[in-house]
Design a protein around this nucleic acid. Structure first.
Lengths: 152, 152
DNA sequence: CATCAACCAAAAGCTTACTTTAGGTTTAAT
DNA sequence: ATTAAACCTAAAGTAAGCTTTTGGTTGATG
């Protein structure tokens, strides 16, 4: 019954460590697909496992389900996504991920340099508006520099 | 009226770029404090500005309000937190932050190396259970190594 | 001193990402 | 053939983090 291209919802849930209800939910959202057997029960292809793994990884780095839906929209509809399809998606996410990492690093440094500082010029303080500080330059050093300015 | 130690809620909201309703909410949650004037309106000390900046920065790196409440619980109650108090809090957060950065980097590398791979051994795939993979070692290289194993 | 902006409290509403509940059907095992 | 586990749908519930609404009070300004 449970051959490799014919997974039941409970089976997928167990393999992926998610609840059956979550799979129903993902399907509603268009993140995964299934077909139905004679008795109206969901059946999945094996590639659903990778999709779910990717969903969970993406969530972990802060993407919303809607953003993931949009990313998945770039995958082919008619065939099972292959290595290259996934790699393309990965590449697009890499950039965002690298930005986020830089952002966190900048924030981390800024936190360290500024959290206890006496600067009262809120408009310039990177802690008070880290987005502005990061918007253009995108590097941690900038924040530190801006913070330094406040001590002038 | 709006002297430096006597800020109104609207004033604080404008300076911090948050809604008045958010300030009410933060107060309810115990994140900030105020006293009331004759007419029952909130008044804030200037240090509320830093508190709010810290709240927003912390949220940005993924802390929940409850976690922030807990961190704030380490600040002195009876006096306005000084440089050292904030620095202590910052130090505690630095570690978490560095961990998160490492985690994101690992995930980023793992995503790149694994997302399009053909590995079907889900139990070992770092994409499928990045927590396990990161749990002990905490370094990006580990994930990559684990991913490599799957290609064996 | 009138008026309008700012403020107040309490409760309901919203979004995200699910879970739980309720009542009924299918499947697998004995 | 029976029965328990697994499955189905639809709707309601949950938690976080706020916003909006309602209806009334206070405060700054001309």
């Amino acid at each position: 019954m449970h051959d490799e291209a014919n997974l039941s919802v409970g089976n997928v849930a167990k393999r992926c460590g998610v609840a059956v209800s979550a799979l129903h939910f993902y399907e509603q959202k268009g993140l995964i697909r299934s077909w139905r057997n004679q008795g109206n029960q969901r059946r999945y292809k094996r590639d659903v496992l990778r999709r779910i793994a990717v969903i969970k990884a993406a969530q972990k780095v802060g993407l919303t389900l809607d953003e993931i839906v949009q990313a998945f929209a770039t995958l082919p509809e008619k065939r099972t996504p292959d290595k290259q399809d996934w790699a393309n998606l990965s590449n697009r996410w890499q950039k965002m991920l690298q930005q986020r990492i830089r952002y966190m690093q900048a924030l981390s440094e800024s936190l360290d340099g500024c959290i206890g500082c006496g600067c009262l010029s809120l408009k310039n303080c990177p802690l008070y508006n880290p987005d502005d500080a990061l918007a253009e330059q995108g590097s941690g050093a900038v924040l530190i520099d801006k913070a330094a300015e406040n001590y002038k």
